[in-house]
Each structure stands twice: as C-alpha cells, then as structure tokens.
Amino acid sequence: MTIPATKPVEELSYEEAFAELESIVAALENSQQALEESLALFERGQLLARRCGELLDSAELRVQQVNVRLPGLPEQDAPEG
C-alpha cells in the first residue's frame, strides 16, 4: 500500500480526518507496508487524531436558512401557539 496523495490535515473536516484515521488503523493492522511507510502512516494518524480533537474543541454550529419554494403560494412566517 502506498500513502495516497492527501490533503494537509488542517484542510480536513472532522469526518474526513476521522475516516482517514480509521483507514490508517486498518492498514496498519494489515501490516503490508514497508517499515518507513508504516511509520509515515502512524505519524499521519497522530496528526489526524489531533486535528479531530481540535475540531471538536473549536467547532461552531453552522446554521443556514434555506429557501422553500412553494408552487403558487406566498412564503409566510408561521405563528406558533
């Protein structure tokens, strides 16, 4: 196995980073790679884990309002009882 061309960890989302971390663990458990390669994977895995931790600490919920198109009906805010 060769290390796939990967983005710097700083550019990864939590999901991406965690998924890659899990695939690295799986690859290391297979132990098919050369020693330097597994060392590189291990180091990358640690970076990924750190990235995940940082994201969990610093993440802020992103909220976006979407347009709901209603065929033939005006858009209206709803009163709530």
Binding site: S13, Y14, E15, L55, L56, A59, E60, L61, R62, V63, Q64, Q65, V66, V68, R69, L70, P71, L73, E75, Q76, D77, A78, P79, E80, G81
Partner: peptide, 26 residues
C-alpha cells in the same frame, strides 16, 4: 452536543391552512 454539524433550516408554517403544503415543501 454536536457543533460539527451543518444545519439547514427550512422555514414553514406549522399551523393553519397553509401549513401542510409548506411542511411538505420544506
């Protein structure tokens, strides 16, 4: 709980005559 998520809010009336169609559209 889960600040990693992205939230999409689709506004709709939740009572009144026009609510059903708006909910379906949302």
């Amino acid at each position: 709980r889960y600040p990693l998520a992205e939230v999409l809010v689709a506004p709709c009336a939740v009572q009144g005559e026009e609510a059903p169609l708006q909910i379906v559209a949302a």
